[in-house]
């Protein structure tokens, strides 16, 4: 054993002894993150129901009560009408552009995140079935 490896060994021991390193978190953190998540789901529900995403006052909830028939558990899937494997946000944009006569949102637009969070929340507990038709 050389002095060098010995020194390294000591350093590892020192690191392990330090508290709260790496991805360590406690109940207060979880509470905070859940609250953030819930707030975004709530924003999504508001966007879903208020008729302001498009230009004609139509709301997603008019055709999708409780976000039913949006099937987030099946995406990405082959969308026959688009002729390719597509993501959920692409179908969100389809419905914004058509029944709502609005403009597409960017995939990472906070509003899109909120919509996807809400849709997925309403579908909690349903098993993943990628590609299902």
């Amino acid at each position: 054993m050389t002095h060098k490896t010995l020194a390294l060994g000591a350093a590892v021991v020192a690191v392990l002894a330090l508290p709260a390193l790496g991805d360590t978190f406690g109940p207060a953190d979880v509470q905070k993150w859940t609250a953030e998540q819930d707030a975004v789901v709530k924003q999504g529900r508001a966007l879903w129901t208020d008729g302001k995403l498009g230009t004609n006052g139509v709301a997603c909830a008019q055709c999708h009560p409780n976000a039913a028939n949006t099937h987030p558990e099946t995406y990405p899937k082959f969308q026959k009408q688009l002729g390719k494997v597509s993501q959920l946000w692409e179908m969100v944009n389809w419905c914004i552009r058509n029944p709502l006569e609005g403009q597409s949102l960017a995939a990472d637009d906070p509003k899109m995140t909120a919509i996807l969070s809400y849709v997925t929340y309403e579908r909690r507990g349903v098993k993943l079935e990628p590609g299902k038709h």
Partner: peptide, 12 residues
């Protein structure tokens, strides 16, 4: 005007 999902499509 528009169709509605059947109730069983709401999982909750």
């Amino acid at each position: 005007a528009w169709p509605w999902p059947y109730p069983q499509s709401y999982a909750q």
